[in-house]
């Protein structure tokens, strides 16, 4: 029973990592940039949810929508002013810029909200569900459900819609996509908006489980989601989901059966092991350099 519980906890954190990992992987897929500021967009999202709840007194789901819109705009803003001017620069330049944007967001949060952790209200309460002998909290159920629904919607969007096809075309060959009449700039901006919007949901759900918000919550959360994206094969949407669930479950099993201090070390160890065997990640293909 305890084992089942740990797996369910793993699915819980895994689905949060997945929502965040999608942003890393989609952005990487289209502009080949590791957006180190992504974790801090999540942190901003958590503050927006918190403020909407405590200052505007709106219901939780409205707070999430506010955060999604805010973060989507923030993501587009970052892309437009920090990364777009560097699109033809060598790869290291935007990477350093991303670290700069990350520090900037943390410092803005520190100035505006102070470094003191703020408590996050209890928004999802109610009796836990009983499955056989296992008790599963409502937060867990909601988190998994919302994440799975969003992932299915994203998959449908990318596979079926015109914009989704344009995104895949741009990530494969931006020049050829231009010849089709696809506006690269719009497509990239939309990718950032979707990635950041999903991250906002991830941040909100994270805060319901770990109800403390400070300017640094994005760092570790972002790092783990990034590891999930790399593990699954960066650039691959399904890879990010798979990697995130593997990381989440590994983490919970280690916490439950080995030691909670070791959980992060085990996550890194798995990453290293997988990359030794499959450098491009579980679902990744060997990268073909563009001409």
């Amino acid at each position: 029973m305890d084992f089942v519980l740990q797996i369910i906890n793993g699915l819980h954190v895994g689905s949060i990592y997945a929502l965040i990992a999608l942003g890393y992987t989609m952005v990487y897929g289209i502009v080949k940039l590791i957006n180190f500021a992504h974790g801090d967009v999540i942190m901003i999202g958590s503050y927006v949810v918190l403020l909407s709840l405590t200052e505007l007194h709106v219901p939780f789901w409205i707070a999430i929508i506010v955060a999604v819109v805010f973060c989507a705009l923030l993501g587009m803003l970052i892309e437009r002013f920090a990364y777009k001017p560097l699109r033809n620069a060598s790869r290291i330049t935007p990477l350093i810029t991303a670290i700069g944007v990350s520090l900037l967001l943390q410092n803005i949060a520190m100035k505006v909200f102070s470094a003191n952790p703020k408590p996050f209200p209890n928004v999802i309460s109610g009796e836990p569900f009983q499955f056989g002998g296992v008790q599963v909290g409502q937060v867990t159920i909601y988190t998994i459900l919302i994440s799975v629904v969003l992932m299915v919607l994203l998959e449908l969007f990318v596979l079926k819609t015109k914009m989704g096809k344009a995104m895949r075309a741009v990530s494969e060959d931006a020049g050829a996509a231009t010849l089709m009449g696809i506006n690269i700039n719009t497509t990239i901006a939309i990718t950032f908006a979707i990635g950041s919007g999903l991250a906002a949901v991830g941040g909100a759900l994270y805060s319901t489980a770990y109800p403390i918000v400070d300017p640094y919550i994005g760092s570790m959360l972002g790092l783990k989601a990034f590891i999930a994206a790399v593990l699954g094969g960066i650039g691959k949407i399904q890879g990010a989901m798979l990697g995130a669930f593997i990381i989440g479950i590994t983490e919970c099993l280690t916490k439950g059966y080995v030691s909670s201090q070791l959980s992060e070390a085990v996550v890194f160890a798995i990453l290293i092991l997988v990359l030794l065997v499959k450098p491009a990640g579980i679902l990744g293909q060997n990268i073909r350099e563009k001409v």
Partner: peptide, 14 residues
Amino acid sequence: RVFSQLSVRENLEL
């Protein structure tokens, strides 16, 4: 420069 990860039909749609 066809989009190799997309199907023939999707390439034509694009």
